[in-house]
Design a protein around this nucleic acid. Structure first.
Length: 157
DNA sequence: GCCAACGTTGGC
DNA sequence: GCCAACGTTGGC
């Protein structure tokens, strides 16, 4: 099983929004970056888990865990002319963009903040800490995954 | 196929 | 709101 980190702006879609969805499940649409697309299409598997990260907000950081419940399939928002994610080059037969379905596993009792991640010796190499890193989906190593779980469960920095 | 201009992301 | 980083676009 592999681990991932998905970024979302909480004003657009937060972990609380996910928790309110039917079955606490939602499709992760709107990714329009080829590197992230390739991960959605090829690398992210059913059963993989990931961190839900809040970006562009007051306290950016990891707020919980999700599980992938459906592997990559065509992002239908690219087919909708009304959508901000519309892409006339994408078709249902030959989709340019992909999405997965995710289900909430748990919301952490506290935010594991970006500041804390940067300061932690075992986490300072995470892709999320790199200045200018704008990839909305990044892989997380097993060691990083376990370190963050430990931080969240101990409920302290 | 180079590269400047432009747009977007996202922390601060 | 500023600005650095970086992906994308388009002229040549």
């Amino acid at each position: 099983m592999q681990h991932w980190l998905f970024k979302s702006e909480p004003e657009t879609f937060s972990i609380d929004d996910l928790s309110k969805r039917p079955k606490q499940t939602e499709h992760w649409d709107g990714v329009r970056n080829y590197q992230a697309r390739n991960m959605l299409r090829d690398a992210i598997k059913k059963g993989d888990q990931g961190f839900f990260y809040h970006s562009s907000c007051e306290i950016p950081g990891i707020v919980g865990i999700f599980e992938v419940v459906k592997e990559g399939y065509g992002d239908h928002s690219a087919l909708d002319p009304e959508s901000t994610y519309f892409d006339p080059e994408s078709t249902s037969a030959n989709p340019r963009w992909y999405m997965v379905d995710i289900k909430l596993v748990k919301k952490f009792p506290r935010i594991i903040t970006l500041q804390e991640i940067k300061q932690h010796p075992k986490l300072s190499e995470m892709l999320i800490t790199r200045k200018g890193n704008r990839l909305s989906i990044t892989p997380v190593t097993t060691k990083e995954w376990q370190t963050i779980l430990h931080l969240a469960e101990n409920n302290k920095a």
